[in-house]
Write a protein that binds this DNA or RNA. Structure first.
Length: 218
DNA sequence: GACCAGGCACATC
DNA sequence: GATGTGCATGGT
């Protein structure tokens, strides 16, 4: 498929999603740090469960870099039970906090000033931060030009015949980033819309394509 | 009760 | 290097 053709398809799907669902206002959070914590907590987990954990941290005045940095892993785990996988996520959050203070003294601003490619490599070196979590942090917390791929993204574009089902994360990411206009707000909205479509319609593991708003796309 | 959710690391072959 | 498995709560 030529680059222009791919670009047309990606744009058309975006327009359909946007006209159907409108602005998604991602990421739902009050601070950049909250986005980072949410990105780790939401791994393979329903967002509603993550929100409960985040609110629990807020209620206990723990959703701040220094507080989380000092909070013992076991205690942290108890506050995030509702997010599921709470032991492993406590470990991952603490791993990130260690990295965050060692390299950036707990400052989001300092971290955000780092070159995107280099920071992405750094984030991926933290145990518990994989490609999607790293990219979510880069795009939604730090406003970097990075396209976030997730299970929904692969499902929608494979079911509509644009990619193979088991296409590698970075191949899918490259497809988007090389074909589309390099626009942070567009990347932000597009991923959010894909998730929205997934939640509401045809991207469940068992397809419900008969009601998918993109059906005529095929 | 089965299935699923805004993944990731690690074991084993 | 591919494939399988553990991690876990809460909604449908």
């Amino acid at each position: 498929m030529t680059k222009n053709k791919t670009q047309d398809i990606l744009e058309e799907i975006y327009q359909k999603l946007f006209s159907r669902f409108g602005k998604q206002h991602w990421w739902p959070a009050q601070t950049q740090f909250e986005v980072i914590v949410g990105a780790i907590l939401t791994q393979n987990t329903n967002w509603a469960n993550v929100e409960k954990a985040i609110n629990n941290l807020k209620k206990n005045k723990l959703l701040a870099p220094k507080k989380l940095y000092l909070l013992p892993e076991k205690k942290l785990a108890a506050f995030i039970v509702s997010a599921g996988y709470y032991n492993i996520k406590a470990k991952r959050l603490k791993a990130f906090m260690g990295f965050f203070f060692k390299n950036y003294n707990g400052s989001v601003k300092k971290m955000a000033s780092r070159d995107t490619v280099r920071l992405r490599r750094e984030l991926l070196s933290v145990k518990g931060i994989g490609p999607e979590t790293a990219d979510s942090i880069l795009l939604y917390a730090l406003n970097k030009l990075v396209f976030v791929v997730d299970a929904y993204t692969k499902r929608i574009f494979s079911r509509h015949g644009f990619i193979h089902e088991d296409t590698d994360y970075h191949q899918v990411q490259d497809l988007f980033m090389q074909s589309m206009k390099k626009d942070i707000q567009l990347f932000n909205e597009y991923h959010a819309l894909i998730v929205r479509l997934g939640k509401d319609f045809c991207l469940k593991k068992k397809p419900r394509c008969e009601i998918c708003p993109l059906k005529s796309q095929k």
